[in-house]
Write a protein that binds this DNA or RNA. Structure first.
Lengths: 220, 220
DNA sequence: ATATTCCAGATCGTATACGGTATGTGATGC
DNA sequence: GCATCACATACCGTATACGATCTGGAATAT
């Protein structure tokens, strides 16, 4: 007899609940996560909430301070740079590994996303643009056969969820160049370029965005 | 008035306690972690133990099953391959980033470690050899200025702590080649080779070990 | 006015308690 | 014998309780 008790634990439920809200930017960086309040909101006790928070802490989505509490990770500017640099490495590798499994449809989808981004350049909306940017990159590495690398890349993107909305608001000049570089990457893939070349193209693309951000910061 | 209450929470204490035992191979993969037993052992209640376990779970050191309990992560063979592949990418990048900060002393230390490994080839001890191997690689990327990448590389190594002891027992032929490749890497660094070349040397070195392992597995 | 002390409310950290779920064992029926 | 069921046991999941710590602001001193 199979008992399909799909009920997941309250601890996991809470984990998902908080995570969704952080990634969905309902809880912004710095947002204070009061354990008792969350517990009451979900109609449960604090114990499962604490467990959920510990997991999110280990993933870097939350920062926790003893006797003070939890807040959504701040990702200050240095950390932003570090995270983006790491993400460039991971995503480049993930994309290269995904190449043999990539279908025509995948490429077409990525192309369509980038076309939307180009169309948006005229009437620039940083938030929507940044969102499409994420979709584009995820489309490239989603077929990565190494789940471990994919997960780390996912976490990297999630970690920056709070800043993502504003990335291209900070460095709007990057937007048109970014679209061009996306086209370059797609072209390389279509032409069956060396995986290493593609990997480095993805990495450098990301690193250039960081560089633009860094310069913007120091000059202002 | 500054009150230096260095006392860390029991939750953190437990986290460290378990983690040390996993990394120190006192708790081997598959080892059952009974929450109540650990709590009693440490003279505390189960609540902090559960929090510690959740963090370790998120780091991939522990696997948790609802209503069954926690055990040290098994890292089956596929996961071993995935983890090593990822680690190759991360460690290569971390090493390349560390290059500008590497001192003569760092290089000398790495060289000394590799010399010990070479000396051990005659009278081969897989466990000691694998341990030195880890030290060698950590020595190379320890100066990495990006803490985020370093942490991920650290976690990769830790994740395999259970298998590490046996890696070179599985593929003993790899040992002499490994030592040679270490020398190559050190030479490249001394000659101020391109960072990318060094990065790829580190990556390929690790990937070749995986490849040797994979072949060993399919042929047996 | 500024710095310091004290206090109350908010929130955290952990112990304890108890019901729920999985698992192994022995009894029962075939 | 072998399969099935009932039950005991071990362990997990969560609620509740309470002391400990932090925080902000009012009261007081300089």
């Amino acid at each position: 007899m199979i008992r399909i008790d799909e009920r997941i634990s309250k601890s996991e439920l809470t984990y998902d609940w908080i995570r969704e809200r952080i990634i969905g930017r309902e809880f912004n960086p710095g947002y204070r996560l009061v354990l008792g309040a969350i517990a009451k909101e979900l109609g449960i006790s604090v114990v499962p909430v604490r467990e959920a928070v510990r997991r999110l802490e280990a993933e870097g989505l939350i920062e926790f301070e003893r006797n003070v509490g939890a807040r959504v990770a701040m990702v200050n500017q240095d950390e932003y740079i570090d995270t983006m640099q790491t993400l460039g490495v991971l995503e480049g590798a993930a994309t290269a590994l995904a190449l043999p499994l990539m279908t025509e449809a995948d490429l077409a989808r990525a192309q369509a996303i980038n076309d939307s981004m180009r169309a948006m350049l005229e009437d620039f909306d940083p938030v929507a643009f940044t969102s499409l940017n994420e979709k584009f990159h995820r489309a490239l590495f989603q077929r990565c056969p190494n789940p471990h690398i994919s997960e780390l890349a996912d976490r990297g993107w999630n970690r920056m969820s709070g800043l993502r909305s504003s990335t291209f608001a900070f460095v709007p000049d990057r937007a048109p160049r970014s679209v061009m570089e996306h086209d370059d990457i797609l072209r390389l893939i279509r032409e069956n370029a060396e995986p290493l070349e593609i990997e480095l193209a993805v990495r450098e693309h990301k690193w250039r965005t960081v560089e633009a951000y860094r310069q913007q910061r120091t000059s202002s």
